[in-house]
């Protein structure tokens, strides 16, 4: 549904060099620290930023070739942008109705009520979380086939986050859909994404299915002596610690079987990110 191939965008002091793919039926996550290039990747995919080189395809077309009909099949949430703050939700309804043939007006109004979004209040008076909720509700209100969601859970409390992810899960129950999502709360992605791309300094440094990431990847903790005799064939990154070394592996089972004395942790996505970024090869 969406493919970025060797997409490069050069800024002063930053270069995006990114390849990723979002397949039909998949929820694909993009994780990385602030300034890693997540938003630039999203904007490049949407044609809001022009790539210097590489290929971008959404529904098999370049972003600039997308017709209004194609854009109707995309729902978007952007981290740093949204509906004009001078409009109210009530103002948006006729606009969305006109823009999207598949706009489900009644359901949208109902969901706004459920998420406590006032219809008559100007959007600029909404909190960050309320603005996010509104964007997500708008994105899923018109039978889109592809959702491109940059930090959709930012500013939300735990309950609202859970409700919103529930809505997205519900959205994915219909066949032929896909989601590309980024979040700085990796816990959101762990339980939601089918595969995860990790981006740092504009480059994709890891791509793995979430199940594999959680089952095969692990953090080994050991003393300097243990580290010196360790078979490092399956060590992706290592880092010096006060107690000795932390090592990231994608073959946890190998070390569990051959080095039973080592402390081996499952490793959350946050820890994997930290090791991938801060650890040495």
């Amino acid at each position: 549904m969406l493919r970025l191939e060797n997409v490069k965008k050069q800024y002063k002091g930053f270069c995006l060099d990114c390849s990723l793919e979002v397949k039909e039926g998949f929820v694909t996550g993009l994780v990385g620290k602030n300034g890693a290039g997540k938003s630039t990747a999203f904007k490049t995919a949407l044609g809001l930023v022009y790539a210097d080189s590489g290929h971008i395809r959404i529904f098999g077309k370049e972003p600039k070739e997308l017709s209004s009909g194609d854009k109707e099949k995309i729902g978007v949430v952007l981290a740093d942008s949204g509906f004009s703050g001078y409009l109210t939700v009530k103002n948006l309804i006729p606009m969305l109705d006109r823009l999207y043939g598949g706009f489900k007006k009644e359901e949208f109004i109902q969901k706004c009520g459920e998420f406590e979004l006032p219809l008559d209040k100007k959007i600029k008076e909404f909190s960050t979380g309320m603005k996010r909720k509104l964007q997500v509700l708008a994105a899923i209100s018109h039978e889109a086939e592809l959702l491109i969601l940059d930090e959709p859970t930012a500013g939300l409390d735990v309950v609202a986050r859970d409700e919103l992810l529930g809505l997205l899960r519900e959205y994915m129950e219909t066949e032929g859909r896909a989601i590309l999502i980024s979040s700085h709360i990796s816990g959101d992605l762990e339980g939601f994404c089918d595969d995860i791309y990790m981006i740092d300094g504009g480059r994709i440094i890891l791509h793995e299915e979430t199940d594999v990431l959680l089952s095969n990847y692990g953090l080994l903790k050991m003393t300097p002596e243990q580290y010196s005799v360790l078979d490092k064939s399956y060590i992706l990154r290592h880092k010096k610690e006060e107690f000795g070394y932390s090592c990231l592996t994608d073959q946890k089972q190998f070390y569990q079987e051959n080095y039973p004395e080592l402390v081996i942790e499952r490793g959350s996505i946050d820890e994997l990110i930290m090791m991938m970024i801060r650890g040495e090869k």
Binding site: K43, L48, K71, S84, Q135
Partner: peptide
């Protein structure tokens, strides 16, 4: 930026 992601 967001406006231009809509079908316009």
């Amino acid at each position: 930026c967001y406006l231009l992601t809509l079908p316009v």
